[in-house]
Design a protein around this nucleic acid. Structure first.
Length: 591
RNA sequence: GCGCCGAUAGUGUAGCGGUUAUCACUAGGCGUUGCCAACGCCUAAACUCGGGUUCGAUUCCCGAUCGGCGCACCA
């Protein structure tokens, strides 16, 4: 361990980011992938403790959104066919037209270079952009050199499905589309009624131009996304009262102009129109509660509203959960957006499928309707091929047009006259029971890897104890990769044997326990502090004499003595937070 | 992608055109040890990769890879 000389290669003291990543690498939480073969930027492995931590965070997310909200978790393929991404906009919108200076090799977004000439460069083909650059004598802004042909850089990884190249596939850049394209199936599953939600936790892929900052910007990463399908006319949430008096740090568009983060209740935020509606505010609240539950520090967290120009054009409102990291500043870890009906509409036009819900009215609406019945027995033989068009023309007439002795309609440019008695009509009263609507979608979207880093960063502390430095990951006990370490005071058979038996007892209860006999007891406590194990159970000679063990608390370093036969139960309660540490047993003086 | 800087045991580092590659911590073993990184002995463990210059390269040069910073990018 290296806590005594935490210095970087330049001789400067390590900053928090370096300390955390160094610890994570050294103790098996996460490390750069493919090290044996030189590595590849933007890919990370989760090690033994990291994988445990990740699973716990994902399971907590499930507890909030799958169990707590009743959303359905699905699992869709990570490779998608072209059609999906044509509809989602990733095929065109996710790729950037680039051009390179022939002289100084600087690379530019070609569409950015002509922003001042064309209103909407997005709509242009690469050839058109190239032509505009030529015609307007645009050269490299840096050195004035000639610019290259325009080429596409698409952020999606491309592959082929099956042999040959006729069927391209793409690694999904977000999990969201899996929910959108399964909308009809999900709607059936939820018995044809709004609102409902579907979620996915899984890998997404983006071929980033330059991934940086460890796990913050990856080429392969884990998302947890919920798509909540709601009735567009009702954006209230029945459970909003549960969260309405929660006070949050909100950084609205207007607050950003002032540069001050506001603190207010969600009730106020919705009332004052700062958050667009209850639906959005409700998921902002649940997001906050989730982030707290996994160990993000509330004082280093805020919700920032997208500015008008950064919001996707279809989004009605969008709030990011951001966290403060010493080295990196405010980083987005969750986005909560009202995506309106954009995605479903787009998939509707691209796939021709009907992605609407029939929403019944509370009361059927009564409506007078004119029903026109042309006498097809007569009209058929008379107009032959044109008969159908004639009938259609008749049906589109209003009551006025159907009066008089003869009825005139214009069909295919000629006026046709029909005798009055060949057309009957009546006004009927009919009940409209509801209507087809395209649901709006509220999307809370979580970047799991960023959340994991944040939990590490916010949990990490380094402190002085008796002149020695102590590194601690203060995980919320239930989130810690290891819940308890079982430690014989010394490595002697009479202590090791009962300790091993206790280890098995913890394991039988499904508690992640570690066993360690090496070195002094103090060293083992510190080793467990470093990976955030919240409790250590120590077997000593009193265990043999009076069947008690001590439990040592990571955060206070205090100890309590408890009966051996109830220690599994007590630790389990401590981990769940059901018992305060000092109430768990008889406090011991530490010597 | 561009520019600048860097890369030596698990971690942090020292150093050099020819060394047995330094030191500390860590890890493993033995002994000791009655509760917060004790001690003694022992052990294991590194010059990122590919070219070039040279009698000889971990060291110098070029390139690649990875990392940091700045620019660009971040739907």
């Amino acid at each position: 361990m290296t806590y005594l000389h935490l210095r970087s290669s330049r001789g400067l003291a390590m900053d928090r980011y370096e300390q955390v990543t160094e610890l994570a690498r050294r103790r098996g939480i996460m490390w750069p992938a493919f090290e044996l073969y030189g590595g590849a930027a933007g890919f990370y492995d989760y090690g033994p403790l990291g994988a445990l931590l990740k699973r716990k965070i994902e399971d907590t997310w499930r507890r909030f959104f799958v169990i707590g909200e009743g959303f359905a978790e699905i699992e869709a393929p990570t490779i998608g066919v072209e059609g999906i991404f044509a509809a989602s906009g990733h095929l065109s919108g996710f790729s950037d037209p680039l051009t390179e200076c022939q002289e100084c090799k600087e690379v530019y977004r070609a569409d950015h270079l002509i922003k001042h000439i064309v209103e909407v460069p997005d709509a242009l083909s690469n050839e058109e952009i190239g032509r505009i650059i030529h015609e307007n004598d645009i050269f490299c802004p840096e050195c004035g050199g000639e610019l290259s042909e325009i080429y596409e850089f698409n952020l999606m990884f491309k592959t082929t499905i099956g042999p040959g190249s006729t069927h391209p596939g793409y690694l999904r850049p977000e999990t969201a589309q899996g929910m959108f394209i399964n909308f009809p199936r999900l709607l059936r599953y939820f018995r044809d009624a709004l609102p409902f939600g579907a979620v996915q936790i899984g890998k997404s892929y983006r071929n980033e131009i330059s991934p940086r900052q460890g796990v913050i910007r990856l080429r392969e990463f884990t998302q947890a996304e919920a798509e909540v399908f709601i009735d567009p006319r009702d954006k209230t949430h029945p459970r909003f009262p549960e969260v309405s008096d929660l006070t949050l740090r909100l950084y609205s568009q207007e607050a950003q102009e002032r540069g001050v983060i506001d603190e207010m209740t969600l009730e106020d935020a919705v009332k004052r129109g700062i958050i667009a509606h209850q639906m959005l505010a409700y998921y902002v609240a649940r997001t906050y509660q989730f982030l707290m539950a996994v160990g993000v520090a509330p004082e280093r967290m805020r919700f920032r509203q997208h500015k008008a120009d950064e919001m996707a054009h279809y989004a009605a409102d969008c709030w990011d959960a951001e966290v403060l990291l010493e080295r990196l500043g405010w980083i987005e870890i969750v986005g909560i957006a009202d995506r309106t009906d954009y995605d479903l509409k787009s998939h509707m036009t691209h796939s021709q499928a009907k992605l609407t819900v029939f929403v019944p009215y509370a009361e059927p609406k009564l409506r007078q309707r004119l029903v026109v019945k042309p006498d097809m027995k007569a009209l058929g033989p008379r107009f032959k091929g044109k008969a159908k068009a004639v009938a259609e023309a008749l049906k589109s007439l209003d009551e006025e047009g159907l009066k008089g002795d003869v009825i005139c309609v214009v069909v295919e440019g000629e006026t046709v006259t029909i005798e009055r008695d060949l057309v009957s009509f009546e006004v009927v009263e009919e009940a409209i029971r509801g209507e087809e609507v395209i649901p709006h979608v509220i999307e809370p979207s979580f970047g799991i890897d960023r959340i994991i880093y944040t939990v590490l960063d916010h949990s990490y502390s380094q402190e002085e104890v008796d002149g020695e430095s102590r590194a601690v990951l203060r995980f919320i006990p239930a989130m810690a990769p290891l819940q308890v370490a079982v430690l014989p005071l010394m490595d002697r058979p009479e202590l090791a044997q009962p300790a091993e038996a206790l280890l098995q007892a913890f394991r039988r209860e499904g508690i992640m326990a570690e066993y360690d006999t090496s070195g002094s007891i103090g060293r083992r406590y510190r080793r467990n502090d470093e990976v955030g194990t919240p409790f250590c159970v120590t077997i000593d000679y009193e265990t043999i004499e009076e069947a008690t063990v001590t439990i040592r608390d990571r955060d206070s370093m205090g100890q309590v003595r408890v009966p051996k036969e109830s220690v599994v139960e007590i630790v389990s309660a401590l981990v769940k937070g059901e018992v305060e540490f000092l109430d768990a047993g008889r406090p011991e003086e530490s010597t």
